[in-house]
Design a protein around this nucleic acid. Structure first.
Lengths: 196, 196
DNA sequence: TGCGGCCGAATGAACGTTCAATTGGAAGTG
DNA sequence: CACTTCCAATTGAACGTTCATTCGGCCGCA
C-alpha cells in the first residue's frame, strides 16, 4: 500500500522526510506544508532536513523524481505480462495503472498538484512528459504493427491518461466508486477510439 | 481573451481583486499568492481586500464559484448551435471547450490546481462535479436517443474531460501545439469510443 | 455630520533557514 | 586492546523575514 521510495544507500531519515512530505502534501497542499510540521511528522529536527536537502523546493523536486521512478518501475512490472495480444495488453495497462493510483492515492494527488503548479516549469519539458516516455514505446509499437491508428503520441497519451487520472481522482475522493466491470468498460472505450 | 468574472452590482475593486488573484495563482500557485502582492497588483490596499472578503480562503472559494459560472455560461453559449446532428455537436463541444481553455489558460490552471488541492474537499461533491452538471444533460440525451452507448455519466465525463484538459495543458505549456486537424482527430477518437 | 469605502502602518504569529553545540561511531595509533 | 582523533549526523534554539489579518483614521459624498 505504501509507495516504495527507498533507494539503496539512502539514509533512513532522508527517506522518512520524503515519505512524510508525500503524505503531508496530500493533506495540506503542495505549497502548504511547513518545514516545522514535516520535521515533527518525520521524527527529525528541522536542521536535519537541511542536512539532506538544500531547500524546501529541493525536497519537492527530489520527491517528484522518486515518484516518477516508482511509477516507471510499476509500469515495467506490468509490461511483463506480454503473453496477451496487443488489445488485451493495452486495456490491462490502463486498468492496472488505474489500480496503482487507487492503491497509492498520495502519488496521484502529488503528481496532479505538481503538474498544475509552478514547479511544472522547473523541469525539462522532456522530463515532464515522463508519462509518455514510459508509454510511447508501447503506443509506437501498436502503430507500427497496425493495431492502432497513426496519431501523434501526444494525442494518444492525453486521451489514455486523461480519463484514467480523472476517474482515479473521483474514485479516491469518493465521488464515484468504479467497479471492475466499469474499469473494463472504460479501458474498452479508450481502446475502441484508437483501434483500427 | 480575459475571463468575464464581473457580476452586476459588484464593486470594481472587488472584481479587480478576483481577476488579479486568478492571474497570480497561475504564476505563483494556488497557495503561493501573498495578500500583499495581490493588493499591489490589484491596486488596492491590503485592508480593502478584507473589506470584501472574510479571509484569503474566501477569495479562492469565491473565485472558484465565479469561474465555474463563467464556464457554465460559455458552454450554454456553445449549445446554441443545435442545428447539427448529435455526432457533430458532440465533437464541436469538445473542440470548443478545448479552445476556451486555450483562450483562457488561467481558468484551466486555476481549476486544475483547485481540484487537486485541499480546497477540493471544501465544496459539496455535487458542486465539485460541475463539469458533469453542465454536460450530463447532453450526454444523457445522447444515451436516450441511442447515439451513444449506455454508460454511467462519470465514465463518459471522465473520458470526455480527461483528454481535453491534459491536451489543453500541454498546449498552454508549449509542450505540443495541437493543430485544428489534430483537435478534430481527438474529438473523433473520443466520439468513436462512445458511439453506437 | 454621519457613514461606508478605503487606506496602510501596525501586529504578532508563522515561516524557511542557519548555526553553534552535541553525539556517536569509524578510523588511526601505539 | 585502549586511547585519541575526526567528522558526519543530528539537534533545536535563534534569526530575520514574510505572512495574514486588524484597526484607527481619513476621505468624499449624502
Amino acid at each position: 500500500m505504501n509507495v516504495q521510495l527507498e533507494v539503496e544507500n539512502v539514509s533512513e531519515k532522508k527517506t522518512a522526510i520524503l515519505v512524510n512530505m508525500l503524505e503531508l502534501i496530500e493533506e495540506h497542499g503542495l505549497l502548504g506544508v511547513p518545514i516545522s510540521l514535516l520535521a515533527k511528522k518525520a521524527g527529525v529536527a528541522a536542521g536535519t532536513i537541511y542536512h539532506y536537502f538544500e531547500s524546501k523546493d529541493a525536497i519537492i523536486l527530489e520527491l517528484f523524481n522518486n515518484v516518477r521512478e516508482a511509477i516507471t518501475h510499476e509500469i515495467f512490472r506490468m509490461k511483463d505480462r506480454s503473453k496477451d495480444n496487443y488489445s488485451e495488453r493495452f486495456k490491462s495497462l490502463w486498468v492496472n495503472l488505474f489500480q496503482y493510483f487507487v492503491e497509492n492515492p498520495r502519488v496521484l494527488s502529488f503528481m496532479e498538484q505538481f503538474f498544475s503548479s509552478p514547479f511544472q516549469r522547473m523541469i525539462h519539458s522532456k522530463e515532464s512528459q515522463f508519462y509518455e516516455d514510459n508509454f510511447s514505446s508501447f503506443f509506437l509499437l501498436g502503430i507500427k504493427e497496425g493495431y492502432i491508428k497513426k496519431y501523434d503520441i501526444h494525442i494518444i497519451s492525453s486521451i489514455f491518461m486523461g480519463g484514467l487520472t480523472i476517474a482515479a481522482k473521483k474514485h479516491n475522493n469518493g465521488y464515484h466508486t468504479f467497479s471492475k466491470d466499469e474499469l473494463k468498460d472504460m479501458a474498452s472505450i479508450v481502446w475502441d477510439g484508437f483501434k483500427i
